[in-house]
Simulated scan of single mutants.
Amino acid sequence: MHAVGGRRTGRMSEAQPKTAEDLFRFLDELGIEHQTKRHQPVFTVAESVALRDEIPGGHTKNLFLKDKKDNYFLLTVEEHATVDLKTIHQTIGAASKVSFGKPEKLMEYLGVIPGAVTAFGAINDTSGRVKFILDEGLMEFDTINCHPLSNDQTTSIAAKDMLRFMEATGHEPLVLKVTA
């Protein structure tokens, strides 16, 4: 809903997900340096490998997971890392073994579609439904590269600034060793 002159308009009952431009404005407000490169939409790590020479730093793979109690997690790891989905629940504090979250919940909580999943989705998780976990190995890179809420761009920021961004969205990201 939008407030107009003290009253609400009935445009939509849910807030619209933030866009890449909203994200860039937020990063600017925080004083976080960022660079973005436009490219063809990519949906998988394999498709995005061609961009590696043009964009230095750690490139990400994101796993949107849920446990049986409907607790949601976003694991952000280096693109070639392996995550053992049979045992990861013990590391991340899930109530049970995990499975992949449904695309509807991905859009509802993070404001993105499959193929555009990103740690930057924290900007859309205003109700704090998702626990964000950044892999230790990824955080060793000086620069981290993520989609800025759409898969036709890649945004680069410093690893330490990713933590600042998360905290500014009201999330306390966990930096854990979640990869094999």
Rank of each mutant, 00 (worst) to 15 (best):
H2R: 15
A3F: 10
A3Y: 10
V4I: 13
V4P: 06
G5M: 09
G6D: 13
G6S: 13
G6V: 05
T9R: 11
T9E: 12
Q16S: 14
K18W: 00
E21Y: 04
D22M: 06
F26A: 01
E29R: 13
E29K: 12
I32L: 03
I32Y: 06
I32N: 07
I32P: 03
E33I: 09
E33H: 12
T36V: 14
T36Q: 07
K37Q: 12
R38A: 13
H39W: 02
H39G: 01
Q40L: 13
V42G: 00
F43K: 04
F43E: 05
T44C: 00
T44A: 01
V49S: 09
V49Q: 14
L51D: 10
R52Q: 14
D53C: 05
E54C: 07
E54T: 10
I55A: 07
G58I: 07
T60I: 03
T60A: 00
K61V: 12
N62S: 01
L63P: 08
L63F: 07
K66C: 08
K66R: 14
K68Q: 14
D70R: 12
F73A: 04
F73L: 04
L74N: 02
L75N: 07
T76K: 06
V77D: 06
E78N: 10
A81P: 07
T82W: 08
T82F: 09
D84P: 01
L85T: 11
L85R: 03
L85V: 10
T87F: 07
T87I: 14
I88P: 08
H89V: 10
H89N: 15
T91Y: 06
G93K: 10
G93F: 06
A94W: 12
A94C: 11
S96G: 05
K97H: 09
P103V: 06
E104P: 10
L106H: 03
L106T: 05
E108N: 05
Y109P: 08
L110I: 06
L110W: 03
V112D: 00
I113N: 15
I113L: 15
V117S: 04
T118M: 11
A119G: 15
A119K: 03
A119M: 05
F120P: 00
F120K: 00
A122L: 04
N124Q: 01
N124V: 00
R129E: 15
K131M: 07
I133Q: 06
L134V: 03
D135P: 06
L138A: 12
L138Q: 10
M139L: 13
M139S: 09
I144Y: 08
I144D: 02
I144L: 13
H147L: 01
H147P: 00
S150M: 09
S150Y: 05
N151L: 02
N151K: 01
N151A: 00
Q153T: 03
Q153S: 12
T154R: 02
S156A: 10
S156K: 03
S156T: 10
I157E: 05
I157D: 02
K160N: 08
F165V: 01
E167K: 11
G170N: 02
G170D: 02
E172T: 15
L176T: 01
K177G: 11
